[in-house]
């Protein structure tokens, strides 16, 4: 009886120790982000802003649009409706890479700062999970920043309609966590010197083949591609946001999207933690 109580109290003190260490790490990351908020916002804005400016403002003014964008027929005149969820998905995914993969490459390679983080009094996988969670916060901030851009910059505003806020929130949270897990997987599986290469070889392809600039249903005429892109987690991020924000466009079934995001999250988290352990524990 007494033994059981002791066991329970050490269990409880362990939980307190771990959660305090986790909170400490999170606090540190927030502190650093707050100091670098301006560069963060610039980084998040640049890509969608230019994309929107060229494709939904400049080109429609040059050629009255229709001939230049193939999905115009599907979205009425508003290619912007297609782009809104897509660009948010890219921002989410990109933040995951920028918040986890790039800093990790540096910490593993040049600075070895990671050794200090690993010496925190909590299990090493929890250090990796903290990175995913904090990256998710950045991804959500990025999504919130991109939304007004994608809404107001286009000459023709997109048609948005949120029928279920909880669904939207769930999609954003799951997509953000998945992006962090993707960043962790990339950051731990690539040699620090080759991290630059990752943009060309991984980031750009998964963006262009991630149903960002077209809905998944529009691929129906290119069957092999339509099936192939199902392996790409970005597809479920953009389709999820499409279902939640611009449901007038064709999109995948919401339940399928949630299920696939959960699968991607679990798989990438597992891969990422495995890589992280391999990197930090000799």
């Amino acid at each position: 009886m007494a033994q059981a109580t002791v066991a329970r109290s050490t269990e409880a003190s362990k939980t307190v120790q771990y959660s305090r260490a986790f909170a400490g790490l999170f606090l540190r990351d927030l502190h650093v982000l707050r100091r670098e908020l301006f560069p963060f916002v610039i980084r998040v804005c640049m890509n969608p802003l230019l994309f929107l400016f060229v494709f939904t403002y400049v080109i429609p003014h040059i050629s009255s649009g229709a001939s230049m964008n193939p999905t115009a027929a599907m979205a009425g005149n508003a290619f912007s409706t297609v782009l809104l969820p897509g660009l948010m998905a890219v921002a989410i995914m990109f933040s995951g890479i920028a918040a986890v993969a790039l800093p990790l490459a540096q910490e593993f390679g040049v600075t070895r700062e990671i050794d200090d983080r690993v010496m925190c009094p909590l299990p090493v996988p929890a250090v990796a999970v903290e990175k995913i969670c904090f990256s998710a916060v950045q991804s959500m901030m990025a999504a919130v920043i991109v939304f007004p851009l994608a809404y107001y910059v286009p000459a023709v505003h997109p048609t948005t309609h949120v029928s279920s806020w909880p669904f939207l929130l769930l999609v954003v949270v799951l997509a953000s966590l998945t992006a962090g897990a993707l960043g962790l997987t990339i950051g731990t599986s690539v040699k620090p010197q080759q991290i630059g290469l990752i943009f060309g070889v991984v980031v750009i392809p998964i963006t262009f083949l991630g149903c960002v600039y077209y809905p998944w249903a529009a691929l129906t005429h290119i069957r092999w591609l339509q099936v192939g892109v199902l392996l790409n987690p970005i597809v479920y991020m953009s389709e999820g946001l499409r279902a939640a924000l611009t449901p007038t466009l064709p999109h995948m079934h919401p339940l399928l999207i949630i299920a696939m995001l959960v699968v991607a999250l679990c798989l990438l988290t597992w891969l990422g933690i495995r890589g992280f352990l391999r990197r930090v524990i000799g």
Partner: peptide, 12 residues
């Protein structure tokens, strides 16, 4: 300062 301060926070 932050280096040492956050280290203390990590340790509860």
């Amino acid at each position: 300062f932050e280096n040492i301060n956050f280290h203390c926070l990590y340790f509860g």
